[in-house]
């Protein structure tokens, strides 16, 4: 079964990365947009997620020759699209409390890219009182503490206190959940564990809680064919110190993926053609790329019985 799972992860991840590669030109926002007119959701978010998928594939190393080949190319492409980081620097100068420049930059540092001026600016902004009083949801603030850690900056919040204010950190009633809260819950896990890079950072009580209730949410959202959320929930499993690798759900998830690698959001069929599908479907496809990549890398360490060094990191 594990062999079959590895091949599922390989297929889901590689074909999603290939779709992203083919759609790369759609992720780059027009170079003539003035910094102050940049629309975060329209211009920045797609590229940020694109870089996330690439950076996780680079971090996890050669999980497949095709992936190892594509992912550095994707990262180079995205870094270039950001003026080798200078665009992020300009954006951050113009918008001192905007958090996206730091979050996006952190993904590139994961793959070894650096921009010293931006780092100097981020360190300066971190010393402002404003950095300690961000009007953000706790799971979003965890994205910032993780980014700061990746870049090597001082974190500006008490992470344990932030966790205690999340839906998940409160061990909330598992049935008091809706779509938006489910996404908030998955991101609490992603940021705390740095996208499965450091499972040991999840508090033991949270690991127990997820072990008990994650199967329920996987069951319910798989039945509802909410593939984007199913992909994120499967990733939550891969962020645990000892993933369950739920085979049935992985098979259903892989079956939902289009042949060209595009992952549908829900049960509705995506439009034909990359350009038309891009706006609504790049996100689930990024999720598929990351989920597939992590299934292979975490699956290999479990399959080969190799001591997964990440289990003890920070734990």
């Amino acid at each position: 079964m594990r062999d079959a799972l590895l091949s599922i992860g390989h297929h889901v991840g590689t074909s999603a990365l290939e779709w992203l590669d083919g759609a790369a030109h759609l992720f780059a926002f027009p170079p003539d947009v003035p910094v102050l007119e940049v629309n975060t959701n329209r211009h920045v978010k797609p590229l940020a997620e694109f870089a996330l998928a690439g950076s996780i594939a680079v971090r996890e190393g050669a999980i497949g020759s095709r992936q190892a080949q594509i992912s550095p190319v994707l990262m180079d492409y995205a870094w270039n699209a950001l003026g080798n980081g200078s665009f992020l620097h300009e954006l951050q100068l113009a918008m001192p409390v905007e958090t996206y420049p730091m979050e996006i930059y952190a993904m590139f540092t994961r793959a070894g890219y650096r921009h010293p001026e931006l780092e100097e600016l981020l360190a300066h902004l971190g010393r402002l009182r404003a950095a300690h009083a961000r009007e953000l949801l706790p799971n979003r603030q965890l994205a910032l503490t993780n980014s700061a850690r990746l870049i090597g900056l001082e974190a500006h919040a008490d992470e344990a206190e932030l966790v205690g204010r999340t839906w998940l950190g409160n061990a909330s009633e598992p049935w008091a959940l809706d779509f938006a809260t489910a996404y908030a819950m998955t991101h609490t896990v992603f940021h705390l564990s740095d996208w499965a890079g450091q499972p040991g950072r999840l508090p033991p009580a949270m690991v127990d809680y997820l072990g008990r209730w994650l199967p329920v949410w996987l069951d319910v959202y798989r039945e509802a064919q909410q593939w984007d959320l199913v992909g994120e929930l499967l990733m939550v499993d891969l962020c645990l110190p000892h993933p369950e690798f739920p085979a049935d759900t992985w098979i259903a998830y892989a079956t939902a993926q289009n042949e060209d690698g595009l992952m549908p959001f829900g049960s509705e069929a995506p439009p034909e053609g990359t350009e038309d599908a891009f706006r609504n479907y790049y996100h689930p496809t990024v999720v598929a790329a990351v989920a597939g990549t992590l299934l292979v890398s975490r699956g290999i360490s479990t399959l080969t019985g190799a001591t997964d060094s990440r289990e003890t990191v920070g734990g």
Binding site: E173, P174, W175, L177, R212, W213, P215, V216, W217, D219, V220, E223
Partner: peptide
Amino acid sequence: TEDLARGAARALLR
């Protein structure tokens, strides 16, 4: 017991 609890949470979410 844990499976009863999972079933109850699942039923409510459904």
